[in-house]
Design a protein around this nucleic acid. Structure first.
Lengths: 155, 155
DNA sequence: TGTCAATCTGCAACGGGTGCGAACTAACAC
DNA sequence: GTGTTAGTTCGCACCCGTTGCAGATTGACA
């Protein structure tokens, strides 16, 4: 569970190779997005990445951001996750893991779960299961302390 | 885990009482929806309930369906679930349970999981967890056999 | 340097869901 | 039965996230 086993999205250089190998072209827009996803741990939305990308390359289209992200996802280089906050999040961590989401601010963090093979599950009869995802939700430390300070300001 | 411990939405008569007790009026539209949810095990979307309701009460508004369902949910009489198929599902089963979704047809079924307290979870530091939901996804028996028959038709 | 398929952008459109306000009606009092 | 009024219903406009489309552009390879 240490950083040594952490499997994230390939480097921009490697993704360039992967794209070319798949017959896809490598454009400046794509290279920018490769860089923005590499080592990214905040599970950004398409809009958030678009904002970052726009700052570095004014005129880049939101459509292109979506296109590149779905290309990356369909090649298995990143994961699309839905934590119920409205917009799809993009996760460069392709390890087998799960997520926590703060129900107040929407922050998402990776969670590693061991022992799920020992769960007793009733109700899967008739299904060929391909995936199981666990989503924790609660309040992050920042939002919790905000609540506390607001409460004491009132009191 | 038998039917005896199954906790579903209250009967239409009980919901009538609950609504009145909360200062809400009991309209024909609401009574119709109470009946449609009672004993419902298909995890319908608002649109699906709207279609059923429209057949019995032409002219009922989709807006009213949403309104009544969110009222029921905020009273804890049913649960809103998101299985990643786009639309919110409404689940009259208020037991502590989880779900499987067929990635092909979107069918949802209830799943009971025991032993989740023995999971080893890493990454929740700093979060006050309020909920954990497990979502299985795979192919239901109907979609699996459809695939088989299509494959043999081709062969 | 040329060719051409792949890509980019902007806009229209779509699905799910919500805010709003005028018309309506359940609930309670008399 | 009638009146009063707060809660509801309906339909429309609109929001958000996302995708389809098409014309202009450009990476990749000869």
């Amino acid at each position: 569970m240490g950083a040594s086993s952490f499997r994230t999205v390939k480097s921009p250089a490697e993704l360039t190779e992967t794209f070319r190998a798949n017959g896809l072209k490598v454009t400046p827009q794509r290279q920018l997005l490769f860089g923005l996803m590499h080592g990214n741990t905040v599970h950004p939305t398409a809009e958030a990445l678009f904002a970052e990308a726009s700052a570095r390359m004014p005129g880049i289209s939101l459509r292109t951001v979506y296109q590149t992200l779905t290309d990356l996802a369909s090649m298995g280089e990143l994961r699309l996750i839905d934590v119920g906050t409205g917009a799809t999040r993009f996760d460069p961590n392709t390890d087998d893991h799960h997520h926590v989401v703060c129900s107040s601010c929407g922050e998402v963090r990776d969670v590693y779960v061991a022992g799920s093979d020992r769960l007793k599950v009733d109700g899967l009869e008739g299904f060929r299961i391909e995936e199981a995802s666990i989503l924790f939700s609660g309040t992050c430390v920042t939002c919790a302390s905000d609540t506390v300070s607001r409460a004491s300001a009132r009191g």
